[in-house]
Nucleic acid binder design. Structure first.
Lengths: 199, 199
DNA sequence: CCTACCGATCGGTAGG
DNA sequence: CCTACCGATCGGTAGG
């Protein structure tokens, strides 16, 4: 039957683990955690159906690992922007652009899984991941607080953060690559909308 | 065993159908379409496991019915706002308030299922529902176009609609009733953010 | 990692 | 709507 067409062997075990995470992130994003079976994942990674359990104890552990890797990568990109010496208006725009990339660029399926499949996490794992997510949110809050102090942002600063991040995170549901707008244009439009009359 | 505690019989068949939709919407919102079994739905409605299929041909049909009912109700509320004689800034705020209610009020699980479980729809059903959803979007676009014509809104009007609706629809992932902010306050904060300096 | 398998659960149905 | 059931699929495991 030749169920699994073997790809060229890699002798590095962690390569296979990474590959599993990559295909899992893609499948979870497309079909959801509950809509994706271990067999879907195995097949996409060129393995047999029991083999993912050599790398992960449970399917839920794969979900957690996907989300943690996404957060690590997203935090890295976000902190890069924070390290730049920029005026807060400019910094917000760059932050938005980085987040758009984390959600919409080719192969960026890890953070979308976090965003759109949160409810599939067990309560214990939610607590674990919230700790990382809080650091993420704190960086955004910092920029928005700066803008507010400078008089460039109206109303409750925490609400503003949730609304801006909401608008950005929601792009994953409608944006299509190769469409009318580039990511840079979306980021530009975002910044203009939220910083109206400031630039 | 007495599997299902019988509720008092209703002799109206459509009452049971409505009840099924109500509990399905709630369960789909909490656990997702794929995370909810027919047995979950049956139990919540006080039926035996095969009985939902007396009212709906497939589980997918329940999902479609939930989304269509949500859209019908949402369209009704939206059109009510459109019928009011209001300046466009005020109209946007009322539109936002109505949408927040449709997503966040007690028992408002139908539109959230549409928003957060879109990927569980078959392609054929997506086409069917997109037609309704387009009318919804068109009403929002109308208000935003008005604002743009009056010079109160910067940039690409379609992008602005997607961003504002995104911020509003995303509230379903973080807003908790009884928290720091009321729905009116969120609506107010939204309008202030998007219409900065206009009021 | 593969092989061979298990018990549980799934959506759905026939017949009343 | 309930009863009794079916075939398919699920996550996961033991043993190599």
């Amino acid at each position: 039957m030749n169920v699994a067409k073997r790809k060229p062997r890699r002798n590095n075990e962690s390569n296979r683990r990474e590959e599993l995470l990559r295909v899992s992130a893609k499948l979870f994003r497309e079909k959801g955690f509950d809509g994706t079976s271990i067999r879907d994942i195995s097949a996409a990674a060129g393995m047999h159906s029991g083999s993912p359990f050599y790398h992960f104890k449970t399917k839920q552990d794969i979900l957690v690992a996907v989300m943690e890797q996404g957060l690590a990568e997203g935090l890295r990109r976000t902190e890069e922007v924070m390290a730049l010496a920029l005026p807060p208006e400019q910094r917000l725009k760059e932050l938005i652009r980085a987040q758009l990339g984390t959600i919409l660029e080719e192969g960026s399926d890890f953070i979308p899984v976090l965003l759109y499949d949160w409810r599939s996490l067990t309560l214990a794992n939610r607590r674990r991941i919230v700790a990382l997510k809080d650091r993420y949110d704190a960086l955004w809050q910092q920029v928005i607080d700066d803008l507010k102090r400078a008089g460039h942002m109206p109303g409750d600063a925490q609400l503003v953060r949730l609304l801006i991040l909401g608008a950005v995170n929601w792009t994953g549901t409608w944006y299509r690559a190769g469409g009318r707008l580039s990511l840079d244009e979306v980021a530009e439009g975002c910044a203009r909308l939220f910083l109206q009359g400031e630039r």
